[in-house]
């Protein structure tokens, strides 16, 4: 019988066929617990993956096409070098705009480290110029040489030095999240296979009787597959709901804690965890079906 027909028959169910295999309390509880625990972990892995994805996009978008020119010069020369650097920037192809940051903006940048009320004007703090690129970009090496000539205290920071590793780290985290979900699915399949094998071995006598009275392999397998699939579905549903509640109770990203407070779902992202229970059921279906047919070939 085809896999599709098997799935359909499993969904519609057969009350009499369900009765031929005796209830197995231990493997039932084991499968339910495994599915619930794995779904719980899968929801967190999914949340991690989505959050790191958002983070990578944010860093990438926020820092792409921007650069900073830092003017470090004696107090009396800062203004002159700033103006010189701005002139160079304005005449550089590939640069859309350039503007010096005001005291308030510089103070805001330093506030997380030094606290509020920082007297910026009395401290030897470099002047920062925010540079926005055009879509085509600019020649960073050429710009550095020109800045060096016109404003010796100007240093160009095009962010690539630290932006790339951050984005790379975020992308790796996203990959790890996806890998974790794949491992969780594989571990779920393995554990359900073990539980199904235990149930099949415990019911060897039942299988012998069923074969004796003319049951086809697909009939016997279905009795086990349906049971394990439904258990995995209900266990995973419970685990998913619990994990979603736990994530909903996490502090919000806007309360200002950085990356960890952003570990959650946003908008339609809350729909993604709902895919986990059907996936767990499919995994259980495949694992039990494979185990059942192998066991049937070995038993008889």
């Amino acid at each position: 019988m085809s896999l599709g027909a098997d799935l359909l028959a499993m969904a519609t169910g057969d009350r009499q066929a369900d009765r031929v295999v005796p209830p197995t309390g231990f493997t039932a509880r084991l499968t339910l617990f495994t599915a619930a625990a794995m779904a719980f972990l899968a929801v967190f892995a999914l949340a991690l993956s989505l959050a790191t994805g958002r983070l990578a996009d944010r860093w990438s978008d926020a820092l792409a096409r921007t650069a900073t020119v830092r003017i470090s010069a004696p107090m009396g020369q800062v203004e002159a070098q700033t103006q010189a650097a701005l002139r160079v920037l304005e005449t550089t192809p590939g640069i859309a705009s350039a503007r010096p940051l005001g005291d308030a903006e510089q103070r805001a940048l330093l506030e997380p480290w030094f606290g509020p009320d920082l007297p910026v004007d009395t401290l030897p703090i470099p002047q920062l110029i925010e540079v926005v690129e055009t879509g085509d970009g600019y020649d960073a090496q050429g710009l550095r040489l020109r800045l060096q000539a016109e404003a010796p205290g100007a240093v160009l920071d095009d962010h690539t030095r630290w932006r790339a590793p951050l984005v790379r780290a975020a992308e790796r985290l996203r990959l790890l999240g996806i890998l974790s979900m794949a491992l969780i699915a594989a571990a779920t399949g393995a554990m359900i296979t073990l539980a199904a094998n235990a149930a099949l071995n415990a019911n060897a006598q039942v299988i012998r009787v069923l074969r004796l009275v003319g049951a086809r392999d697909v009939y016997i397998a279905r009795a086990f597959v349906r049971r394990f699939t439904l258990r995995a579905l209900s266990g995973a549903a419970a685990g998913t709901v619990l994990a979603m509640i736990a994530i909903a109770l996490l502090p919000g990203a806007e309360t200002g804690g950085g990356f960890l407070t952003g570990l959650g779902f946003q908008g339609a992202g809350w729909l993604w965890p709902l895919v986990i229970p059907p996936l767990a059921a499919l995994t259980a279906f495949w694992a039990t079906r494979t185990a059942a047919f192998r066991a049937l070939r070995e038993l008889m």
């Binding site: 009765r19 031929v20 005796p22 209830p23 006598q205 039942v206 012998r208 009787v209 074969r211 004796l212 009275v213 003319g214 049951a215 086809r216 392999d217 049937l296 070939r297 008889m300």
Partner: peptide
């Protein structure tokens, strides 16, 4: 294996140890 299952429906077998499903009543 499916043919064998079909065959079992045409050949009724009675064993000495007559195995049953112990959780089901006799009529089932």
């Amino acid at each position: 294996r499916d043919d064998i299952a079909w065959l079992r429906r045409r050949v009724g077998v009675v064993h000495q140890d007559c195995q049953f499903l112990d959780h089901l009543p006799l009529e089932e």
